[in-house]
């Protein structure tokens, strides 16, 4: 197994470290898991493009020694679709967050899945708009306090993984940052999957989400992700907990492959 030092030296832009992320932010763990998955698969970094939208999660691609596009808010999947369709040989990874992916980018999200274009999408769900200081997001659990739900959120939240499943994504997994090895394996599977792969990561925002909800201890935060999740096998016994694991893995025709075969039929 590659050490953090080797991982750092091989994949990270040294000038950008240490990262701008807050203490206890899970985004770095997701970056770590992603790079480990890429390393295990021995992927060519020069053939990869990391796309992101706007938000804390979307800063991750700035740290990787590869081509990257930091798009407009919510539009990462639209830009990534253009990159993948423009050059299907590229391996395109998208970092997005709950607000970026399911709030402002919700329409792009379901349509990129509907087309089944070959992107690996890693959505870091921290239940809040962290970069703007902790507003209610589309995944904020009911009754949670945020700067725009000061009396507790009343909105029903989205379940990102279920949304991806319903829209037709062939590969869907959900883990938390407290399950780094499983997360790394899920990302690995997602990268290998030819179609649209969706990996949701439940990740803490201690500064903007947990602090406002009166949880100010890193250990309590860490334990929350262990205690409030359950692997899908045992999900029925614990209906109050969030199911984690590989939620879907099927074969489905990918868009650029379909386009390629269309072109071979009509090309003069």
């Amino acid at each position: 197994m590659i050490s953090n030092k080797e991982l750092h030296d091989k994949y990270i832009k040294k000038a950008m470290m240490p990262s701008i992320l807050c203490a206890g932010c899970g985004n770095g763990t997701v970056l770590n898991a992603t790079l480990r998955a890429i390393d295990v698969l021995d992927m060519d970094l020069d053939n990869m493009v990391f796309v992101s939208g706007i938000g804390c999660s979307s800063r991750l691609n700035a740290y990787i020694n590869a081509d990257a596009l930091h798009a407009t808010h919510g539009r990462a999947l639209a830009f990534a679709t253009g990159i993948k369709a423009g050059n299907p040989k590229l391996d395109v990874v998208v970092f997005t967050g709950d607000g970026d992916c399911a709030g402002i980018g919700g329409n792009h999200f379901i349509h990129a899945i509907r087309r089944n274009i070959g992107l690996t999408v890693i959505a870091i769900n921290n239940y809040t708009y962290g970069m703007t200081g902790g507003q209610m997001s589309p995944t904020t659990p009911q009754k949670s306090i945020s700067t725009t739900s000061p009396y507790g959120a009343i909105d029903h939240p989205f379940d990102l993984a279920e949304l991806a499943k319903a829209a037709g994504a062939p590969y869907v997994a959900r883990w938390t940052i407290a399950h780094p090895l499983q997360l790394q394996r899920a990302i690995k599977k997602g990268l290998k999957n030819n179609g649209f792969s969706f990996i949701e990561v439940l990740s803490p925002c201690p500064t903007s989400f947990w602090r406002r909800n009166k949880v100010r201890n890193f250990e309590t935060i860490y334990n929350w992700y262990k205690e409030n999740t359950v692997t899908i096998k045992k999900a029925k016994e614990h209906p109050d907990k969030i199911p984690i694991g590989e939620l879907k893995n099927i074969d489905k025709d990918e868009w650029t492959d379909l386009w390629k075969s269309l072109v071979s039929e009509v090309r003069i």
Binding site: S3, N4, M17, N27, T29, N32, R36, L181
Partner: peptide, 16 residues
């Protein structure tokens, strides 16, 4: 087991 290396959000820990 090197779980600490994988979970560290800041690439700050190395087990060798």
């Amino acid at each position: 087991c090197r779980l600490c290396e994988m979970i560290c959000p800041d690439f700050a820990i190395v087990v060798e």
